[in-house]
Design a protein around this nucleic acid. Sequence first.
DNA 1: CTGTTAGCGCCTTCAG
DNA 2: CTGAAGGCGCTAACAG
Lengths: 357, 357
Amino acid sequence: MTVTLADVAARARVSPATVSRVLNGNYPVAASTRERVLRAVDELDYVLNGPASSLAAATSDLVGILVNDIADPFFGIMAGAAQSAIGEGASGRAGGEKLAVVCNTGGSPERELRYLTLLQRQRAAAVVLTGGALEDPGHTAAMTARFAKLADAGTRVVLCGRPPAPGTGGDAAITAALAFDNRGGGRRLTEHLLALGHRRIGYVAGPAERTTTRHRLEGHREAMTAAGAADEELRRLTVHGPYDRRSGYDATLELLRRDPELTAVVAANDTVALGACAALRDQGLRIPEDVSVAGFDDLPFSVDAVPALTTVRLPLSEAGARAGRLAIGTETPPPGGIAKIGAELMVRASTGRPRGA
Amino acid sequence: MTVTLADVAARARVSPATVSRVLNGNYPVAASTRERVLRAVDELDYVLNGPASSLAAATSDLVGILVNDIADPFFGIMAGAAQSAIGEGASGRAGGEKLAVVCNTGGSPERELRYLTLLQRQRAAAVVLTGGALEDPGHTAAMTARFAKLADAGTRVVLCGRPPAPGTGGDAAITAALAFDNRGGGRRLTEHLLALGHRRIGYVAGPAERTTTRHRLEGHREAMTAAGAADEELRRLTVHGPYDRRSGYDATLELLRRDPELTAVVAANDTVALGACAALRDQGLRIPEDVSVAGFDDLPFSVDAVPALTTVRLPLSEAGARAGRLAIGTETPPPGGIAKIGAELMVRASTGRPRGA
DNA sequence: CTGTTAGCGCCTTCAG
DNA sequence: CTGAAGGCGCTAACAG
């Protein structure tokens, strides 16, 4: 019923091996033979059997891209860029047709592990993990073990927007890591606010147990501490929540309750910042006249917000593309395997001098 | 080097067949035996070889979800919901671990076809296509042929937010189609504007050759025509462009040039609407006092826009989840294979009475 | 440059 | 309920 390689071989009057060779293109074949084979493939409407091929070759052309939230453009942009880079890398000849595929973990450690298992089971050629990692010792250990397993099965592992696990050097298994300068970006953002004259700055952080959250918050606190803020005060003006609009809304209300004299709110990311803006507006406060607001990431919608959002730009698209290239081996890993990706402060209309100034 | 099923069998002192049976769970196995096997699996850290399994069984656990633009939450929301539904459906026992995976076509017909081929090659269990289809006879024919091929290889094909190809009934191969009521939604949206007193309404449409674009536009024109608008006028006040912010911005400027007396702009979707808002603001026009603006989809950010966007809500998450269930056979297809998904008008602050009224 | 020969690791009848 | 045996479709040495 279904056409196999043998059928093609018969029709082209060559051996199966030859057909395999022209299909994979990694072996010299006479032009005339190749053409005959290709014609047979076409006439028979033959489609290679992936599982059989993967089984025999002990590798597959699957590349998995893991994201924490597929509905969030932060991940969509990186994943899209990675997927393009992977697709294009294969363009040379028919051979390297990689199947780049994105998997949504929803931020759940179980699902992250499950996808890794599934990908390992498929003998994936590479795995790209995007976004912050969960900072739980158990989970980190489990992940590190999986990475090792994947690596020695020949699967490349690349991190994009996620620092390699610290400590025991357990991440030797990783091909490359692209780490965003979340700490530096966070620091510069808060320094901008301090320079404007703000002192009472609320911080709406992301989920407590994620690297991204922690680094951005640390950057903020670095700047605040340098400006003389007390630890206790910093803690009082920090509220954690998920990376969504609702969290920004609720947390801002809570911050206002804790300190009605707040003159600025810094959000963990742009989406959260939008929620913060909504909350302030609903309280009758003007942005930035009464309260300044800042975000992080510089997603496409941020420039269209009213007022346009001051934020920190991350080169998501470039980083994603680079991760894709690293995954298929089109680009060589940076020295040491880890590269730091810069973050650029974007000052726009949502931040201004505080009321008093 | 790598652990195989035989190794597990040896350790558990059973035959490979038995191990296979407990792993797949679709066959009676004594509880004590099962436990012994499971323990061996665990001790050996065994991971099933997907390709080998797929080859022998002639099916795989891959489910592909195709999207036009992964960075667009419209698709992210549907894909995320579908992926969850597929993941959960498998929960029964270890057996049905489906690998739901999203593929970004970028709206390119070639990539769409390419992914379909790749998925067919992998012997995917199902394919979900989301969002509008390209209306090109050649491409439609190619897609229909692929669907047939997939269907008779046992791959389920479900459409989500895309109507089945019309005409030759060639889509008998499709398992189910969930079609959004784009036409009805578009009509009701424009009727709302007409009821407010608007007559000179500009329309920023999506790419011309897509079903979604056409249906929304037809709904708009239905309403306009019923209100006495002339065809020529309608054509004059319609501008096409991609589904992005930039297109909304540019098209709005163009519409304003064509008719400076415009009192409303209807955009093909919310993202485009945001661009339209930006253009109007840059022209010194107030929303909705000078010009009303409306979008489509009701993405999460639309309620936070300033002013909050009047739009048409599509139940993206529900539709995605349902598509996922249909893909894994957890839900039975609607009678006739096609279900129409309602669209609800959401009136918010971006639309109001026109200047004159 | 091309054909031949063995498996890759698992599932699935078929017996028992 | 469990074991034995054959083959899924392709690739990868080897010869020629």
